[in-house]
């Protein structure tokens, strides 16, 4: 197993681990990944991945508009809003 780049993984997960916790998580992850590594022993070359035990959906919608809520319902939990927008600090490209 290769080293775990905890900085990169937390970047992908949008988490900013406090410095002192980076090692804690890195070690924990390493243990768990080592623990699940036994899957590599199984020959699955003939096996298709299983995404879901139900393999066929019965839900396909007709193209119809159904309004179930108001603008306010959508914004009522917003931490910050301006009129009917969600408000955030400026995104700088």
């Amino acid at each position: 197993m290769s080293e775990i780049d905890i900085k990169r993984i937390s970047y992908l997960a949008k988490l900013k681990l406090p410095h002192e916790k980076e090692e804690f998580y890195a070690n924990s992850l390493k243990d768990i990944i080592k623990w699940v590594d036994n899957l590599k022993m199984i020959d699955t070359s003939e096996t298709e991945p299983l995404h879901n035990v139900t393999e066929k959906t019965t839900s396909i919608r007709n193209d119809e508009i159904i309004k179930i809520n108001s603008v306010d319902d959508v914004l009522s939990n917003a931490p910050d809003r301006a009129q009917n927008f969600f408000k955030v600090p400026k995104v700088v490209e």
């Binding site: 927008f85 955030v88 600090p89």
Partner: peptide, 14 residues
């Protein structure tokens, strides 16, 4: 996101 209404904030329209 609408960036040009306010110098400090962006507004999100979904």
């Amino acid at each position: 996101s609408i960036h040009d209404i306010d110098p400090k904030f962006s507004f999100i329209d979904l």
